[in-house]
């Protein structure tokens, strides 16, 4: 029996499948924390979920509001500081981190700082936060993209992927050999990086999405895997977990806000009547 799901749910589920048992995982704000909870609950009970605020080995019971949400769980194993969370990453103890994407180029370099000129921005985005250091020193980095863009040239280079491609990242001497983004998950498909050229390519496509629909978002001639696969659809168990754990993620931002606003209005009207 097929189960009904949203593309946002699929994105969360595909990201969760990248979390393996016994790995040390750094979770970024938003979607990755839901993926982390899903993985821990369904297939990776021994995964060590960590956040840069210094919360190590936590198991969220509700969707964390942010990466310092010590109230989304009942205690956790180690309370350290942000400085130590990053030096732990620098020393090579982090297996995988998850980062969101605003702009990404052909070689997985990222911009999360600004659209337009840095000193006179069209849109000022959040900035680096932990991103630049995590993608530098995690063994793997999984990029998740909702509403971001593929661009030929980043407006601002926030976080290093494979630099100019090929062996540039390893040659720079700035990063551990073999590190860098391992995949990018969007609401249309799963992208990976060519082992030699480090150019991004479409590796799997989500069910019901056409290749042209992916290509139209990319301003260069996107490489497509010769053996392009279809993303494994979510299981009933995976979908059920998200609906129960983070119903607002299932609903999506727009619907969640619309319903919450209506709910507040209803309550306030009832208060005025009583």
């Amino acid at each position: 029996m097929t189960v009904k799901y949203t593309l946002n749910e699929l994105l969360i589920i595909v990201a969760a499948r990248e979390i393996h048992n016994d790995e040390n995982i750094i979770l970024g704000v938003g979607l990755p924390t839901v993926s982390g909870a899903l993985a821990k609950s369904l297939h990776a009970p021994n995964a060590n979920l960590m956040m840069e605020s210094g919360i190590f080995d936590f198991e969220p019971l509700v969707r964390p509001n942010h990466i310092a949400d010590a109230m989304s769980c009942r205690g956790f194993s180690c309370s350290t500081d942000l400085f130590t969370a990053f030096t732990t990453t620098y020393r090579g103890f982090v297996d995988v981190c998850f980062l969101g994407v605003a702009q990404v180029d052909k070689f997985g370099n990222l911009n999360t700082t600004v659209i337009g000129d840095y000193f006179n921005p069209d849109l000022r985005l959040p900035g680096s936060g932990g991103a630049a250091d995590f993608i530098s020193y995690s063994k793997r980095t999984v990029l998740t993209m909702r509403g971001g863009n593929f661009v030929n040239k980043l407006d601002y280079f926030t976080s290093p992927g494979y630099l100019e491609g090929g062996s540039a990242r390893d040659d720079s001497g700035l990063f551990p050999k073999g590190s860098g983004p391992s995949m990018l998950i969007s609401q249309k498909g799963i992208f990976r990086f060519h082992p030699e050229t480090k150019e991004i390519y479409l590796s799997e496509i989500h069910p019901g999405i056409a290749v042209d629909d992916v290509k139209k978002d990319v301003p260069w001639d996107l490489m497509i895997d010769d053996n392009l696969k279809i993303t494994e659809p979510p299981s009933a168990k995976e979908v059920a977990f998200i609906r129960k754990f983070a119903p607002t993620e299932s609903a999506g931002n727009a619907l969640a806000i619309e319903l919450a606003t209506a709910n507040i209005m209803k309550k306030m009207a009832a208060r005025q009547q009583s």
């Binding site: 620098y90 840095y118 680096s128 630049a132 250091d133 280079f157 290093p160 630099l163 720079s172 990063f175």
Partner: peptide
């Protein structure tokens, strides 16, 4: 601090 930032605009700008 970690040298990786030297590849980015955080360092350059």
């Amino acid at each position: 601090v970690f040298e990786g930032v030297m590849a980015t605009d955080l360092y350059r700008i």
